[in-house]
């Protein structure tokens, strides 16, 4: 299990990285944390011709408040740093909650926030969370104007994004959540740190009358790609998030919005069943948190 050879570039600035990527075109691949990529290379399932290592660009690693009250996270910020950042915990407690489910601590020390999103592994937690939080992704390319893509539009297939070979994800911005917003991530996996057999993340907002003002819910591991539920908003928005309403969302979403597969660790039916359970758990807790002010 040794990787094939490749050309190696270690740019020390974003500009230099973009130059190199432009030069390499389809032959080049960005090396961020490498925690998925290098494992795949060791199996020789990934054989990139050239790697552009972003680990020598300190300017890509930061967590900064935005003027709007959100956060901007540099693409090379380690997942561990996001997990343990007081800034993140204060604004987006969902993120550290999710981070604990991402592989094991040693992987989170090296794996990067932007790298995980750009890798677009449908079984990965961060692509789903970027979608449910509607994160704004800054894409840079040599000679191109900076472009911002909403996370749900970034990911177009399993391990596929709109990022061109000469481009890179440079920054992710998370806009502040409205008042009375609560969120909750729920996951079932065989073991701690393992792949999700099903997972649900919900972000809900209550209005002043305790009706559901907004709900975003993503269903993960139960389809080819993470699925943003439409049933949740159809059923809940404008209504009281009663137990019955939440159960109705769970029933309908699990019945019609997902397409789980049978694999070594569970049948499609089982995954559908736990999705239903996780939706109830996720929404119930998210609303409870919203009620407490988020």
């Amino acid at each position: 299990m040794k990787p094939v050879n490749f050309d190696y570039y270690a740019p020390t600035s974003v500009e230099e990285a973009l130059d190199t990527l432009a030069e390499l075109g389809y032959n080049g691949k960005v090396l961020a944390g490498g925690q998925s990529l290098i494992a795949a290379m060791n199996f020789r399932m990934a054989r990139p011709g050239a790697l552009v290592d972003l680990n020598n660009i300190p300017e890509l690693s930061y967590i900064k408040p935005t003027p709007e009250g959100g956060l901007a996270i540099g693409t090379m910020t380690r997942v561990y740093a996001v997990e343990h950042s007081p800034e993140v915990a204060k604004r987006f407690p969902l993120l550290p909650e999710v981070a604990k489910f991402i592989a094991h601590p040693q992987i989170r020390r090296r794996g990067t926030f932007g790298g995980a999103i750009a890798h677009a592994d449908p079984a990965g937690q961060l692509p789903s969370i970027s979608m449910v939080m509607n994160m704004k992704c800054l894409i840079k390319g040599k000679g191109k104007e900076d472009r911002w893509v909403d996370a749900p539009d970034l990911i177009i297939g399993p391990f596929m994004t709109v990022i061109e070979p000469d481009e890179m994800l440079a920054e992710v911005v998370i806009n502040p959540l409205p008042a009375r917003t609560g969120a909750r991530y729920e996951q079932v996996s065989r073991q701690n740190g393992g792949y999700a057999q099903a997972a649900v993340a919900s972000i809900v907002t209550l209005d002043e009358k305790d009706n559901c003002k907004d709900v975003r819910m993503i269903l993960m591991g139960v389809g080819e790609l993470p699925i943003l539920s439409t049933k949740a908003s159809e059923i809940l928005v404008g209504n009281k998030p009663t137990t019955e309403a939440i159960e109705a969302v769970a029933e309908e979403a699990a019945a019609s919005e997902i397409d789980p597969a049978t694999d070594l660790h569970g049948t499609a039916e089982y995954r559908r069943s736990i999705t239903r359970v996780l939706i109830v758990r996720s929404l119930t807790e998210a609303f409870a948190r919203a009620e407490k002010g988020g």
């Binding site: 079932v188 065989r190 057999q197 660790h265 569970g266 049948t267 039916e269 089982y270 995954r271 069943s273 736990i274």
Partner: peptide, 8 residues
């Protein structure tokens, strides 16, 4: 056994 098998 896994949870899915127990479910079945």
């Amino acid at each position: 056994l896994n949870p899915s098998i127990i479910y079945d």
